[in-house]
Design a binder for these strands. Structure first.
Lengths: 340, 340
DNA sequence: CTGTTAGCGCGTTCAT
DNA sequence: ATGAACGCGCTAACAG
């Protein structure tokens, strides 16, 4: 790399010190805004001279060098394995919002092989959204060697790091109970890979709630789709176009539910009157649409995850690790109102 | 931070040196694999001892410290302003694929305020996907101070950094010419925000191509939607359900075109026979779907961008900056075949 | 109260 | 194969 002075080189603290006619220590105090509190004072006039010199040279402290000395990178890493999922985007958005005023930069790692990266690259805190079984050992190794971790997982315990837990099952049961209070013909929208029968906790909540209410499973009321919003739209069209159509729909995700609302409206049905639709996940967009989406999900999930992550980043992970449970609630809104 | 030895501390090169009974220099040579070539030789037995010691302690070189000395971070930063766009995901995917074998980690910056971040955080190369006018000055400042930049922009010149240019206009004209060779009733799918008329180069290509062919613009053939794939699906349903329907559709993006294909099939039409559909952008998925999607776009765009970025990362930006033009081509596939 | 000196903490690298 | 200097910015201890 070009280490010779001149263009193509980043200005260093020494260049600023020379330019301002002071020592590097003084520049450091000015740039980090630590004059006064504990450290030595710097006169206003010197501060101004240093600021001006830094400005002229376009100087910015080198974060890598700062990190070596202070042990803080002013960075959090978000390891997200499904970047295309709106869930990931919500995490990013919330973390950015909370991190910005703290002067902390969120960096996103879209790599399935995050273990290796985290072993070499430091951050004040790391959020991990999925742990494969073979990665568990490495995770504990990272925690033991000082990496501050916040892990999203339904099964791990707090073994040196925080665990965020958000179990869908009971919440989904709430959603079904809500629909079954006023309906007997309840359909389901569920993603399924090419021909295989639907599965997963969110779907099990559907079948077992029907069974609990003494209603036989009607396969014509189960709309499987390819996981895309367009697929959910088309599946809803099929479900609601029939003669003996369901009067309520349970969608296993809010994004499927939103597409279902669009499809129902396209068919001339008034959602919340002619047909009730409920989603799963409590995505933010559901609250803002018309009609607003009834759903189940954790409360303030992304906001609270972001705040925990940044608290850990600022603390330096000195606290005892916790298991944070996010209990799911029922949000009754316009798309599936109360039916006494 | 916990600087005292024991758990919660990362092992350092000095600990490994002590454990192996050698100097830190030797450990450094072993870990960076530089023994022999130019550097001093290290005996095989010593290499083995060092490797074992590093393994026992779980040592990984601290990339931040390494960066200070070498000026290389083994990191590239991708500044992406629209993470929800499939275009961004394609960039990420291509860069990850090219970077992995080089031992370089891509970090994603999903922040609109990337300028500040890049002023403090170093990377071997940075990809920037959008430059707002007020950011241009800062961009040149970054380049002048040694940041290796690859910028995606249609207007900027190469002023200290590489510019990737991919101008849509002429390519979209090709798409329209292709359809107009066999059709006179050509519809258009274009996103438009709440009530405002459609705009943009991709739409202008539609209107001016019609004008050039002496065909009056039929507003019933223009399907505006909200930018989502579901919206595109619904808009296509409207366009193709009418009595006097278009026989060909020009979609201003491949994602809209894919939804349009789904909708047409849902209506019982055979795409490529009953109705021709062409997209814009040359997204990879279009090639893999059935029927394969005719489209216009640059060739191997993401792959070539990734390779340029990583070449720059490895070179250290010592080459002359270039303006890379990605000319658009017509890809005639099944969804809109040739009509003699 | 103001500012400087002299280290520190990394991994790398050159002369020995 | 090594000791010591090096490249950063930070900061405890010191001098004016």
């Amino acid at each position: 790399m070009a280490r010779t002075a001149g263009s193509g080189t980043r200005p260093t603290i020494r260049m600023v010190a020379a330019e301002a006619g002071v020592s590097t220590a003084t520049v450091s105090y000015v740039m980090s805004g630590r004059r006064g509190e504990g450290g030595p004072g710097v006169s206003d006039i010197t501060v101004e001279r240093v600021r001006a010199a830094a400005e002229r040279l376009g100087y910015r402290p080198n974060q890598a060098a700062r990190a070596i000395r202070t042990g803080r990178t002013n960075t959090v890493i978000l390891s997200l394995t499904m970047l295309s999922d709106p869930w990931s985007l919500s995490v990013i958005e919330a973390v950015q919002r909370v991190a910005a005023p703290l002067g902390i930069t969120p960096m996103i790692l879209g790599d399935a092989d995050w273990v290796k990266v985290l072993q070499s690259h430091d951050a004040d805190a790391v959020f991990v959204d999925a742990v494969r079984p073979e990665q568990r050992g490495a995770l504990e190794g990272l925690a033991a060697r000082g990496t501050t971790l916040v892990v999203f997982d339904e099964e791990l315990g707090a073994e040196g790091f925080d665990v965020i837990r958000s179990v869908a099952g009971p919440g989904c049961a709430l959603a079904m109970q809500h629909l079954l209070a006023g309906h007997r013909k309840v359909g389901c929208l569920v993603p399924a890979r090419g021909g295989t029968p639907p599965a997963g906790r969110r779907y099990e909540a559907y079948t077992s709630a029907l069974a609990g209410a003494g209603i036989a499973l009607n396969e014509d009321f189960v709309g499987t789709f390819d996981g895309t919003t367009t697929g959910a739209y088309a599946a809803t069209m099929r479900l609601l176009s029939g003669e003996d159509r369901p009067t309520a729909l349970y969608a296993t995700s809010d994004y499927a539910a939103m597409s279902a609302v669009n499809a129902a409206q396209r068919l001339g049905l008034t959602v919340g009157r002619d047909v009730d639709i409920i989603g799963v996940g409590n995505a933010i967009e559901g609250e803002r649409m018309t009609p607003s989406l009834s759903t189940v999900g954790p409360v303030d999930f992304f906001e609270r995850v972001a705040r925990l992550l940044l608290k850990r980043a600022v603390d330096g992970g000195t606290r005892e690790p916790e298991v944070l449970d996010f209990p799911w609630q029922l949000f009754v809104r316009e798309s599936a109102p109360h039916r006494a």
